[in-house]
């Protein structure tokens, strides 16, 4: 890990410590936590919903938004998660399923649903895998935004652009050197800097799900495997 990452509070060891720190900041901190949760987990939950037997309950956006609205402002929500010992994604899936159960009851009470569901396992054979694939994608996109913002704020725009040109546009490094009019060694520093930002942002999102740092590589490898 880089020295930058070792700085206190720069790379939280667990979601718990990070959440605690943010929540101590009051409503602003809570918004930061909620923003992270929604940014990384909303899409996977929608994918999970669409693969479930409950997908006729409504629009995935409405279901997920309703779930977040009903849970994330509760003072005790994250304390309960920590007490559960569950990974955050499992905690959210469980909570989402419970929310859907509440939605079934609500629709039945209002007589506006022909649903006769009780809560059963989702239809797809591997809803968790579908969730995890979507989770991996969301984390990559969220880490991208984080790293881009970090580079932008520190005047490292060209570092990030070079990263994009190579990793997204597929331009070989050799051509990037010409395009950016830098020496190979300067390009190497730029590549390492931008890649380091992205790497730290991505690893932080794995940590934020509740994994120990020693397990982050294993989780990344597992996600890479299921993406194939």
């Amino acid at each position: 890990m880089s020295k930058e990452a070792d700085k206190p509070d720069a790379f939280p060891k667990t979601m718990g410590t990070w959440i605690d720190k943010q929540l101590q900041e009051g409503s602003v901190g809570r918004d930061v936590v909620n923003s992270h949760i929604m940014s990384v987990y909303a899409h996977p939950l929608k994918i999970y919903f669409l693969g479930s037997s409950l997908r006729t309950l409504g629009e995935p956006d409405d279901m997920v938004d309703g779930f977040f609205a009903s849970r994330l402002q509760k003072e005790s929500y994250f304390d309960q998660w920590k007490e559960s010992g569950l990974r955050l994604r499992r905690w959210l899936i469980n909570g989402f399923l419970f929310h859907l159960k509440e939605e079934i009851r609500r629709q039945k009470r209002h007589g506006d649903s022909s649903l006769d569901h009780e809560l059963h396992s989702p239809v797809d054979a591997s809803p968790d895998l579908d969730f995890d694939r979507a989770w991996a994608m969301s984390m990559v996109q969220d880490a991208w935004r984080d790293a881009a913002s970090s580079c932008d704020e520190e005047g490292l725009g060209n570092h990030w652009r070079l990263f994009i040109r190579h990793h997204v546009d597929g331009v070989p490094y050799k051509l990037c050197v010409e395009e950016f009019d830098v020496s190979p060694s300067q390009a190497a520093v730029m590549v390492r800097t931008a890649t380091g930002r992205f790497k730290n942002a991505l690893r932080m999102r794995i940590l934020l799900d509740g994994l120990h740092e020693d397990d982050v590589d294993g989780e990344l490898l597992r996600l890479m495997e299921i993406m194939q």
Binding site: V140, A143, R203, D217
Partner: peptide, 26 residues
């Protein structure tokens, strides 16, 4: 500036996500 402000890497297929995940491995 457009590159910096892009909200993400755009549509990602499985291989692209895998490549990005690989960058995170220590």
């Amino acid at each position: 500036q457009d590159s910096m402000k892009k909200s993400g890497p755009g549509p990602l297929d499985g291989n692209s996500v895998t490549n990005f995940l690989q960058l995170g491995v220590e």
